[in-house]
Design a protein around this nucleic acid. Sequence first.
DNA 1: GTCTTTTTTCACTAAGTGATGAAATGATGG
DNA 2: CCATCATTTCATCACTTAGTGAAAAAAGAC
Lengths: 232, 232
Amino acid sequence: MTAAKPRARTAGRGRPAKATGRDLKETILDAAEGLFARHGFHGVTIRQVAAEAGVDTALIHYYFGAKRELFDAVFLRRAEILNTARGLSMDAYEKSHADRMTVEGVIEAFIEPLLRISQDGGQGWKSYFALVAQVNNTPAWGGETMARFFDPVVHRLVETLKVVRPDAEYRDLYWSYQFLTGSMMLALSETGRIDSLSEGQCHSSDLGAVRARLFAYCAAGFEAVIARAPKA
Amino acid sequence: MTAAKPRARTAGRGRPAKATGRDLKETILDAAEGLFARHGFHGVTIRQVAAEAGVDTALIHYYFGAKRELFDAVFLRRAEILNTARGLSMDAYEKSHADRMTVEGVIEAFIEPLLRISQDGGQGWKSYFALVAQVNNTPAWGGETMARFFDPVVHRLVETLKVVRPDAEYRDLYWSYQFLTGSMMLALSETGRIDSLSEGQCHSSDLGAVRARLFAYCAAGFEAVIARAPKA
DNA sequence: GTCTTTTTTCACTAAGTGATGAAATGATGG
DNA sequence: CCATCATTTCATCACTTAGTGAAAAAAGAC
């Protein structure tokens, strides 16, 4: 990073964050988020981000450094919020159902926060989920990033499920999680594919429809995998 | 397309196609396939493909035209084989189990050909599945392409399931398929994520482990969604 | 041999790429 | 009013990109 560190966020010394009212840094992140989500990292140029945000390309480098660092900033911005929300949801469930937890209940506690955030959080969050889905499916990309941010909460899910079904094998739980995350991320990224596939009977933006089915679907899947355990 | 059409394949006038043992066209497609699968369309340059294939960039344009056409050629090459294999698998199942089809059986007939091809077909097929998974998760990309090639066989799956469970609603079947395809494509693209997540207990290359679990997982999911039908 | 056709390479272009250093801007504290 | 400093823009650099047109190479047809 060549540029000076951008801000100590004291009370405004220097030129104020423009008369736009909105923080320019956030505006840049929003623009980058939307574009990266639609076209992927390499499908977006700094100039496009700059145009979308209404700033000069140099400003983007001033705030974020290289293009890759901009991408990481986009990824990071919401990752922690996500983990916190999920952690709280699972805390609440474990507390309120301490002695009568079910597989479906645990799974719901794991997935539901994401659905709620996507529904209530506006377009930014929808773009973000599409972005994560894409990272998750790009072999030469996400490996390390995904692991660093999302492994802990997944391990917690697996451990909790192990408490609910002590006889289940870890391998079965991990594979079931893999299936779950594939379904979940595809649903959250709202690709529009189901709209045309179902000839208008379903809409990928209808997260209520997802909520009404995904928990049951995944829970039944877990149970079935556990049930036919002695196999590999 | 500016370049002359590459081939009239009458009986050999002019230079024959193979000076190198292998067909150069296929070599180019192989190189492009591997690179696109790892880095996505925009993450790959024609020059990289040319270098990997050991040819000049102009030759790629000579055979395939623009970069996007090269990508389509890569996508197309295996799509038909895939559809044929799947069609045959479902034919066989419907014939052999005409009066005793099960949800799990139908799903197995739908997924199993892909697993077998991925196991027996070599690295090319593995790359191809990773590529499809990526297209499937890129909103601004796959819509039309995916629909054109894969909708028919999906419609067939849904109709067959409707025969097995006549009381099921189409919306439930389409949503369940959406969940299925998310799990299936993530498993087929072998991202390696489960390896690190499970600390070595599972391997994404272990398609036997997928086979032993995915059919049961998805079938149970379908049944559960159908069962809690009168909703949403 | 020569002709014709296809395949391959070379040299090139016009447009864009990420990135940077220097200058302009304007609020703030002295 | 002036010096300071974070912020913002401008002009540009060195390089890469997709794509092309012309010529060379290869090989059967005659």
